[in-house]
Write a protein that binds this DNA or RNA. Structure first.
Lengths: 247, 247
DNA sequence: CACTGTGAAGCCATTCACAGCT
DNA sequence: AGCTGTGAATGGCTTCACAGTG
């Protein structure tokens, strides 16, 4: 219905974390890594953001028929420098061949596995305003293992309408809907004023990973992953740089 | 028309930068800062993100009638620790009073000034899909010095319709519209496939600050500010942490 | 010979702890 | 007495440069 909703592939970085996280393990860097070792240990946040970019770049390369690639090519495609790409990948294990490079499909799989994209994630979208609708129609999710499990809103005139192929359900039934739909992630695209309350409810019914677009500081118990994207913040940071560019 | 579009105040951090920027000045930390010194010198990206949070917290405090505050209170409201808040503020100058704290309105102004929010920014939104519409209706922008200057799209059935109080204009006329509307910032909420082309056009007609939601790596000449927010990346990072939380 | 994998160096950001004011 | 402002210490991430290897 319009130009947008960048349904395609490739893209880019983002947020500051927010994970009060108390990851169980304290040791990483175990001595032996017998290759293809399943558990990847803790990856730095910055590395994670870049891995998603490599993944996009790889998918593009595969689509254009490339079988192999190198840190130089991949780095350019992902907009980073080759050294850090190699360092990032080395944190996952040694999946390249010296003097040659990386096998596209192989590397794609290793990164997907490390990121946890081999399992299907079910996302409940809380708030069916424009942002919520944009998200529920965003092709980039479905194509990467994220299934929209439910779409909720509080406004009577919105509840019961359909967005894409999803019916908007009543936010009042959040707990039962989340349980029934087996959602294990949630996106909060609601006004700041209701965000904390809904966040608490999500946590109560077992959701441990939440992406919030609400412009408020949210408190979550340890063990819950919270990421926030703040649109006004983005523009403000841009304004700062714009101001400083002016002669 | 629904629950979302968090029109209110407070909110949170976000993105990884992307500024190939070749900021003129190399010196900062000049010796004397005669207070209220106009030019703030380069602020670290991480500090910028937090400053926007402090600003939100301050606006809330003001709204609830507080005249003064302290690093402890503000830090809690912004979700950071007091030490880094003080360090951040000290980069702007010494606007607090030892033993007392900060005057809310005064600090608000200093931060606004540092961020470049005292001038009016005019934002062209490129792409009037759900995301573009969500952004153009986002109250948090207008209330912070960001005026929506224009809303463009390519789809014939969308051009000419109104969104809020804005008429959607034809993206084919981008150059003239940007010039006439005096837009000095742009938001790209278009499909990845058209993003680079539109980005180039924006740069051509003088826009030097761009916030992109398109899931592609964009190339811009030095001197242009580009920030990117990638929704799929956010979920993927969350997936990683979710996977690692699972016992 | 080309390209990966990685120790070491360098840089940036956060935290600590306390001196300096009011 | 209390809270700011900041040097010093710490920790994490990035870049460098090269040894290792097919």
């Amino acid at each position: 219905m319009s130009t947008e909703d960048h349904t395609e592939d490739n893209g880019v970085p983002a947020g500051v974390t927010e994970l009060p996280a108390a990851h169980g393990q304290s040791l990483d860097q175990a001595s032996a890594q017998p290759v293809t070792a399943s558990l990847t240990r803790i990856l730095p946040e910055a590395t994670l953001a870049r891995l998603t970019q490599y993944l996009r770049a790889l998918i593009k390369l595969k689509a254009s028929g490339e079988l192999r690639t190198s840190s130089g090519v991949l780095a350019t495609a992902a907009g980073v420098n080759p050294a850090i790409l190699r360092k990032d990948l080395s944190l996952l294990g040694s999946y390249g061949t010296r003097g040659v490079g990386y096998v596209v499909v192989e590397l794609t799989e290793h990164i997907s596995k490390a990121l946890g994209l081999l399992q299907q994630w079910r996302v409940a979208i809380i708030g069916a305003g424009n942002l919520g609708r944009a998200l529920s129609g965003y092709g980039g999710f479905r194509s990467r293992g994220f299934e929209i499990a439910a779409l909720l809103d509080a406004a009577p005139e919105v509840i019961g309408t359909t967005v894409g192929d999803m019916e908007v359900q009543d936010i009042a039934d959040l707990e039962s809907i989340v349980q029934r739909s087996k959602a294990n992630m949630a996106v909060l695209s609601v006004p700041g004023i209701s965000a904390q309350d809904l966040c608490d409810k999500l946590v109560d019914c077992g959701v441990r990973s939440i992406l919030s677009f609400a412009p408020v500081v949210l408190n979550v118990p340890a063990g819950v992953n919270l990421r926030r994207v703040d649109l006004a913040t983005e523009l403000q940071i841009l304004a700062y740089h714009a101001q400083n560019l002016e002669a």
